[in-house]
Design a protein around this nucleic acid. Structure first.
Length: 357
DNA sequence: CTCCTGGTTC
DNA sequence: GAACCCGGAG
């Protein structure tokens, strides 16, 4: 569908694309845009107050974490500029902003890979027959019995600890923190870093993570009243939180889907399936971030959250990094990489190359 | 690119 | 004895 309202606003259209249908980014761009325009119209005027009323309004609404309010705020903020346009209805804009429409005027349409629905269905069947570590130990399970604020903090800390660490180990560390009442911003901020190091010890990079935990706890206390940041860009400012964890925390911590959480499993499997490629080429993506952007171009948004546990579990049990078990994989017929990994490690692997395209 | 960490797995 | 862990930072 075309959106007459948004058509003449490239900044908006870009940011409301499926690539980044992120209300917070929309808000950010809008405030940036409004303030920069004000500077343009009043170059000599005082720029000491970059936030005019409408920009402030946007911020207030966004803090409420309500999609409808956010979109209303966007419409309101752009109202002076769209008087000669034919406005869309609110639900239309909202659908557009949240990626529910199948077509987008801003980017060339990307065809979903053939049989992707059969592939997902096949993986679901395999996953239901064999339990994977992620099912019981994933950090989205962290603190399910806790009140919302504490649960969110548990999710954040669990994410911090989980990188390059087996799920069981992460889970154990979280349990020990919980038993010692060290799973809140206040407690961690006061706690001794050495004590934290001891508690989380078996996790990978425990020293750096203990240090990051202290810093994160302090930031959460000072800036967010002991809660965790609620937007992607604010989460990314925390030490030890990168894109993968930021999306995970937004998804399971805030139940606010802004992007696909792409880890090594999702990255590897999407490339094996031929689901993603570098822009303009058919070459495989080289980083998880490239995979995320490529995948988000065609994967329907309802799958953005479930795709992660689905593929992670699949990657832990069947489509393993080394020696994938293509023999028991039910979707090998659809997989261009099936049975194509280097068969014998004895024949001089030389440089590291897990499999051949 | 390298480092951070150490237990596990092949 | 590499390569692997639901990565991130420099």
């Amino acid at each position: 569908m075309s959106l007459p309202l948004l058509k003449n606003f490239p900044a908006i259209v870009n940011l409301v694309s499926p690539k980044s249908c992120q209300s917070s980014f929309v808000r950010q761009m809008h405030t940036t845009r409004l303030s920069s325009e004000k500077r343009e119209t009043n170059p000599s005027a005082e720029s000491k107050n970059p936030d005019d009323d409408s920009a402030k309004q946007v911020r207030v609404f966004v803090r409420k974490k309500r999609a409808t309010k956010t979109v209303q705020a966007i419409v309101e903020a752009t109202k002076p500029e769209i008087l000669d346009q034919k406005p869309c209805s609110l639900p239309e804009i909202e659908d557009f902003a949240y990626g529910k429409q199948s077509s987008f005027s801003c980017s060339k349409e990307v065809q979903p890979p053939a049989n992707w629905e059969k592939v997902i269905e096949g993986i679901r069947k395999m996953r239901s027959s064999e339990a994977a570590p992620v099912d019981s130990m994933g950090c989205e399970k962290a603190g399910v019995s806790l009140p919302p604020k504490e649960r969110r903090f548990a999710v954040l800390i669990s994410s911090l600890l989980s990188s390059q660490t087996k799920d069981q180990v992460t889970h154990g560390a979280i349990q020990r923190l919980l038993q010692n009442d060290l799973l809140s911003a206040e407690a961690i901020n006061k706690a001794d870093e050495g004590a934290i190091k001891e508690l989380i010890h078996p996790v990978g990079f425990y020293s750096r993570k203990a240090s990051n935990m202290k810093k994160v706890a302090k930031i959460c206390l000072d800036k967010y009243d002991g809660d965790i940041p609620s937007s992607l860009e604010e989460l990314l400012e925390l030490p030890g939180i990168g894109p993968k964890m930021a999306h995970l925390v937004m998804n399971v911590g805030w139940n606010n889907v802004q992007g696909i959480c792409v880890d090594t499993h999702v990255h590897r499997i999407c490339n094996r399936l031929g689901w993603v490629s570098r822009q303009g080429t058919k070459q495989r993506t080289s980083t998880p971030e490239q995979t995320r952007e490529s995948l988000q171009l065609w994967l329907p948004k309802e799958e953005w959250v479930p795709i992660n546990p689905l593929l992670v579990g699949f990657g832990q049990t069947v489509c393993t990094p080394l020696r994938p078990r293509c023999g028991i994989c039910k979707i090998s017929d659809y997989c261009p990489s099936a049975f194509k990994e280097t068969p014998s490690p004895s024949s001089t692997p030389k440089k590291k190359r897990a499999f051949i395209e």
